[in-house]
Design a protein around this nucleic acid. Structure first.
Lengths: 258, 258
DNA sequence: CGGATGTTTGAGTAATATCAACTGTGGTGG
DNA sequence: CCACCACAGTTGATATTACTCAAACATCCG
């Protein structure tokens, strides 16, 4: 099989959109009953709009760690809402270098960059076993014409992503390595908190290399700084388990962001 | 007058949305007759949708060099399409550092990051005397429900901005200083080309410091690299006038992007 | 249990920032 | 219209940050 996800050369498997294996197709989505509905596309929708969404968001995909949800260059057809698990989005260079551009947790919607050119401009890869809802874009955009709030949500998610891009530029363009790490940790904690998890104690789903790529640093730099933060009593690190100890000090480093 | 644009402390004037000075309010927009219509929000619209847009995009603003179109924290009400001139968008840190996040030429639409939170998350400043069309967002979003193509264009502009954010992350996170400069120059040339200007000979509207901020470099580094590129015969630099000489070599540096 | 993958830490290096001096250049008022 | 001033840009010497290369150690998975 080409693109087997255990094959280190092929690296990741793209889930085909047309013929889904039965084991995947059987999962039926229902936004109206989804536990994520207050953090995802359905936020604030009236029952009628929700019912309409249910008609259109009908399938889910299950991904294994390392599977690609879509790849750079794939035709764009749908957005994907993460029901559980997590994913990274990666931008590739012709020479093979790559930049992790985003780190997405449950409730997040990925694939938004594909709308403009009807083709994805990045690759999304599951960081652990992950389930996503498939949101066929054309259908939902059609629905949005009848349901202003749904349209508003779509605009809103797109715009939020724009804003995140701006802050990523600030992070990568203006902050020192230690500041980037502090922002990263606080931001991640904040996102977990919003989902009802601890903001101060969590498990990273990325390798040091992926964190480094996201922050524009090398893996050794990430490792060293985490060690230093630990020595200074800012955090407690045990492999991928992180505990934030001195939040005010981290905030200071991060310059009050987050 | 507070915020006079000649006052170095106030730095830039925010144009108030409510009471526009008469000299500004007198300019009537007409998308249907605008020379930018094929590069801006109206692209591809049918005559009916265009006429509807004309009803809603009714005013223009004139800005002097250094005037702010909106500022970080301002309530969001409208998008702005650049009719002529250019602008930078800037993201600010609490400690005063700032990062130039975008460089916008005619036809570009700025303000897209404000949709989500109904508040702008960045500041847009004119780099020269500039005129923009005011696109009241709520009204246009309403129209978009009746005109699928207009909706599509709105989604498309938002999504394009997301994609640009991804590429900015690649630029800032993975490229060396010389590669960033090469990408910057080629990208700028490409954008001028699209507007019918020369792709190889143009005038920068930014200072070295602004370019540096955009690229995550210091002004001295930008200056040095431009000098080096000139010494190597890649470009001809005379202050802000740039001529790209050896495009293939620049492309090679840029890694085929652009 | 063993290999592969990921992490830590050290020593030396390269890239870019910083500090500083000097040189254009464009706009303004005399 | 010219002289001047503030601002923008260049260039050099030095400092610093983060990278590279390398080796040892840990952890996960089959």
């Amino acid at each position: 099989m080409p693109h087997d996800h255990n094959d280190p050369a092929a690296a990741h498997e793209t889930v085909p959109h047309g013929a889904l294996p039965p084991v995947v197709a059987q999962f039926k989505s229902q936004c109206s009953r989804c536990s994520m509905r207050e953090l995802c596309l359905p936020v604030g929708l009236d029952p009628e709009a929700l019912a309409a969404l249910d008609q259109v968001v009908t399938s889910r995909l299950r991904l294994h760690k390392g599977d690609a949800l879509y790849r750079d260059g794939d035709p764009f057809a749908a957005l994907y809402a993460i029901r559980y698990g997590s994913a990274k989005t990666v931008v590739l260079m012709p020479d093979g270098r790559e930049q992790v551009a985003g780190y997405h947790l449950l409730g997040d919607i990925v694939g938004l960059d594909g709308v403009a050119h009807e083709r994805h401009g990045s690759t999304a890869v599951a960081l652990e076993d992950t389930e996503v809802c498939v949101i066929p874009f054309a259908a939902v955009a059609g629905l949005a014409r009848e349901h202003p709030l749904l349209q508003k949500n779509l605009f809103s998610f797109l715009s939020k992503e724009v804003g995140e891009g701006l802050h990523a530029m600030l992070l990568l363009g203006s902050l020192r390595a230690e500041e980037r790490i502090a922002v990263f940790l606080l931001n991640l904690g904040e996102r977990y908190r919003r989902h009802g998890y601890s903001a101060t104690e969590f498990v990273l789903r990325m390798t040091r290399e992926e964190i480094g790529s996201y922050l524009g640093l090398k893996l050794e730099t990430v490792s060293r700084l985490l060690s230093r933060f630990q020595a200074e009593g800012l955090v407690k690190v045990a492999g991928r388990s992180i505990k934030l100890i001195d939040i005010p000090a981290l905030r200071l480093l991060a310059g009050q962001r987050c």
